[in-house]
Amino acid sequence: MTLDAPHAASRPTTSDELRAIALEQFASVGFAGTSLQQIADAAGFSKSSVLYHFASKEALLQDVITPAIDQLEVMLDRFAGASDPAKGRARFVDDFIDFLLRYRLEVHTFINQGQSLRGIPVIDRAGRLIVRLSETLCDETASTEDRLRLGIALGGAAYTLVAGATFFEDEIAPADEIRTALLTVVTELLAPVTVATGPRTDRNQKA
């Protein structure tokens, strides 16, 4: 055994490289705007090499998105099973920040492109989990403001983490500072500050 063996063993595989390139392309260019040829070119492989590892672009999308969706489902199950709702919510928000930081490209892809990618099984599964997340954090008494806060917390945080370098013309801040700031902002956004009272008024009903 040589001293180089551990480094060789830890080298990313071709599949890993293709996943990383595809995820970057899906998040930045969009799934519809990305072709297998573009992924192959960016990775330095032939299109046939991509198809050797992944049967289709949809299969590649499923492979790169599924780990994030699996983790979100685990978090929601843990939140739903919490004996103390307040503590469970606080832990969920804390876990959710780490989730966003780890899976920012995946979250950006399935939240911000979800509407246009309906019908793709992995995206539909993500959509069902987002609905479940909404129902868990915002029950039937939640106001319109609470629901808007949830949407902004999810979509806004994902967008900012992905587009931050462009939006701010540089890195937003050191990683630990970003996490602290995200925790503060998302906690505030997900805190139920209003409660809808009484029946909802039909928008077409005349005063």
Rank of each mutant, 00 (worst) to 15 (best):
S83R: 11
A20M: 12
F26V: 04
A55D: 11
A191E: 14
L117H: 02
K57F: 08
S83Y: 02
A59P: 03
F45N: 08
A207Q: 10
V122W: 02
K87R: 15
H108F: 14
A196D: 06
V131M: 09
D70T: 15
E106R: 06
V107S: 06
I65Y: 03
A207V: 14
D77E: 13
K87A: 14
S35Q: 03
L18Q: 11
P121Q: 05
G127A: 09
A157K: 01
P199A: 08
L18A: 10
F26M: 07
A9Y: 09
A22N: 07
A68V: 12
I65R: 04
A173E: 10
I39T: 12
P12Q: 04
A59L: 06
D4Y: 04
D94V: 00
G198T: 10
A27E: 02
T197E: 14
T136S: 11
D16I: 00
A196G: 05
E106H: 12
V64E: 10
Q25E: 13
F92W: 12
S28L: 11
K206C: 01
S83M: 04
I39H: 06
A22R: 02
S15D: 08
A207Y: 00
L161W: 05
L105R: 15
T13D: 04
V162Y: 03
I97N: 02
L61I: 00
A42S: 12
V93E: 03
R179V: 01
E140V: 11
M1K: 04
E169H: 13
A5N: 12
A59Q: 07
I39L: 07
S15N: 08
T2N: 13
L129P: 03
D202N: 15
I39S: 07
E24C: 12
T136I: 00
T34S: 15
M1V: 10
L72M: 15
E177P: 00
V185E: 07
K57I: 02
V195C: 08
T144Y: 12
I152Y: 11
P85E: 07
D4I: 13
S35H: 06
R104A: 03
A9C: 05
A126C: 08
A5C: 05
Q115G: 05
I130A: 05
A181F: 12
I123K: 01
D4A: 15
P199M: 02
A157Y: 00
V186W: 09
D146Y: 01
S28W: 10
I69Q: 02
F99S: 03
A40Q: 01
V29A: 15
I97P: 07
E140T: 10
L183A: 13
V93T: 11
V193K: 13
L161I: 08
D124H: 06
D95Q: 12
T66L: 05
V74I: 12
K47V: 10
L190D: 10
